[in-house]
């Protein structure tokens, strides 16, 4: 597979959220507003890319019996760095989604890519895979957050969309997250089927 395709597959063909159904907990929990969603997406991109590179570099001398704990340590180290950076430079964002940033440690996209890809490929491919998957995650969560924030709070990035309109409050509640996620996934499947024809 060409390097460019390696990067591209995470965005559409194997989108971690909409196709692989991984990392749904942060997707559902932080997609209530664009600000949180983008913060979450960027953190995942950072952690995923660097964890893929490091794990690909150390893959030859990690004993296979304890590889998962080793991956977790690498990921936890990166997440701590990201968490502290956010807490330092964007305290408000940290207050809103801090808990979910810490939970990136056990995010199945990151562990999944480490196990399924980074441990079997060279650092360059692993980096591109991580970057593509991370951007795929960011795009998916941004689409869901856009739908939810516009319909549920009548806002986008905190700016009012239609003045004087009563937003559909359920969309920023957890029920709205599941509803939007299902519908966005369905739309992606329909588009994919059309393309396949």
């Amino acid at each position: 597979m060409s390097l460019f395709k390696e990067f591209l597959k995470g965005i559409w063909e194997k989108n971690p959220v909409l196709v692989l159904s991984l990392g749904l907990c942060p997707t559902l929990a932080t997609s209530g507003s664009m600000k949180n969603a983008v913060g979450m997406g960027l953190s995942v991109i950072a952690v995923l890319t660097f964890s893929n590179i490091i794990i690909s570099l150390i893959k030859s001398f990690v004993p296979s019996k304890i590889r998962i704990p080793c991956y977790i340590i690498v990921i936890a180290f990166l997440v701590t760095v990201v968490d502290m950076l956010i807490a330092g430079f964007a305290p408000e964002l940290s207050k809103a989604i801090g808990l979910f940033i810490k939970l990136i440690v056990v995010n199945c996209i990151i562990l999944g890519r480490a196990e399924a890809f980074a441990a079997k490929n060279n650092p360059l491919r692993a980096a591109l895979d991580g970057l593509g998957m991370g951007i795929g995650f960011l795009i998916a969560i941004s689409i869901i957050a856009t739908v939810r924030e516009v319909l549920g709070a009548n806002k986008w990035f905190g700016l009012t969309v239609v003045p004087g309109w009563d937003p559909i409050g359920i969309m920023i509640l957890p029920a709205g997250a599941l509803l939007t996620f299902g519908l966005v996934m369905a739309v992606r499947n329909v588009l994919a089927q059309r393309r396949a024809k």
Binding site: D166, P167, I168, G169, I170, M171, L173, A175
Partner: peptide, 9 residues
């Protein structure tokens, strides 16, 4: 759906 969305109305 309506009750969760528009509790006031």
């Amino acid at each position: 759906f309506l009750l969760a969305s528009f509790p006031k109305h």
